[in-house]
């Protein structure tokens, strides 16, 4: 069975983001990009499923400009088999991504779409569900455990109040939560070898997907920072201020 793993590159979360002066976006010049944390977990899970047997091929797909190639090569070095870059320089939203991913899915013989539950830049948490709905497939989102058993997958989901386990037939769409696994690092020699793995560059047009977006980001701003308060010297002082000053007790 073949697994499709859509991935997104995002700014490194350890860096301080700077906005463009007009608020139209973030400054991207010279910043460090990483694979979206949750997508990296999806890549890792696909590789583990392949290592257990039953998975024949892991195909990556990403939408973005040329230099997304480097992130795809990193995921190839982790152990994915081939990559498709849908070259696109303009704005993209979850809806556009889902339409493109759905078309790629239809062209291959995939049994599963495995991707992160959210991208840590837009934090929208929509793409997996949108892909599933477009393909009219079952979804298992926010997965913290995935067990493939014949034609079905048992997925433990992180939900409000605890965990829920569902069993869905293949093909299906699974989105990964943080605790699913700890992704491996791609070793340096593998990074060299990854450059030789199959890498296809296509366009939205070739998929018959329009580049329209449904969500327009007008302006970005930084939230007003919370002011630091003060230190108290003892537990007694803390209780006093909570009682008499903050009046929350």
């Amino acid at each position: 069975m073949k697994i499709l793993v859509p991935v997104k590159r995002v700014p490194d979360w350890q860096l301080k983001l700077k906005l463009l002066p007009d608020g139209s976006g973030i400054q991207t010049e010279g910043i460090k990009w990483i694979l979206n944390t949750f997508d990296e977990i999806a890549v890792e899970e696909a590789i583990r499923l392949k290592e257990k047997g039953g998975v024949s091929e892991i195909v990556l797909v990403s939408i973005g400009p040329d230099d997304v190639r480097a992130r795809l090569e990193y995921a190839l070095a982790m152990g994915a088999d081939s990559a498709i870059l849908i070259k696109h320089d303009g704005p993209a939203d979850s809806d556009l991504a889902s339409r493109a991913i759905a078309e790629v899915f239809k062209k291959g013989d995939y049994a599963m779409v495995l991707l992160g539950k959210q991208a840590i830049d837009s934090d929208a948490s929509q793409t997996a569900q949108l892909v599933a709905a477009r393909l009219n497939l079952p979804q298992a989102c926010f997965a913290s455990k995935v067990v493939v058993d014949g034609g079905a997958v048992t997925v433990t989901r992180e939900v409000d109040g605890g965990l829920e386990t569902i069993k869905v037939p293949l093909p299906c769409v699974i989105s990964t939560d943080l605790r699913l696994n700890e992704p491996r690092y791609a070793a340096l020699p593998n990074l060299m070898k990854a450059k030789k793995k199959p890498f296809e560059v296509i366009t939205l047009e070739s998929l018959g997907v329009s580049s329209d977006v449904k969500v327009k980001v007008r302006k970005l701003s930084t939230p007003s920072a919370r002011k630091a308060g003060r230190k108290v010297a003892s537990v007694q002082e803390l209780v006093d201020v909570l009682q008499n000053e903050a009046k929350v007790l």
Partner: peptide, 20 residues
Amino acid sequence: GSLRRPMYAGNIIAEVELLA
């Protein structure tokens, strides 16, 4: 009628317009 929503772990607030 545009909306505000957090991005980047709440480091940034986006003003978005839904076009459909």
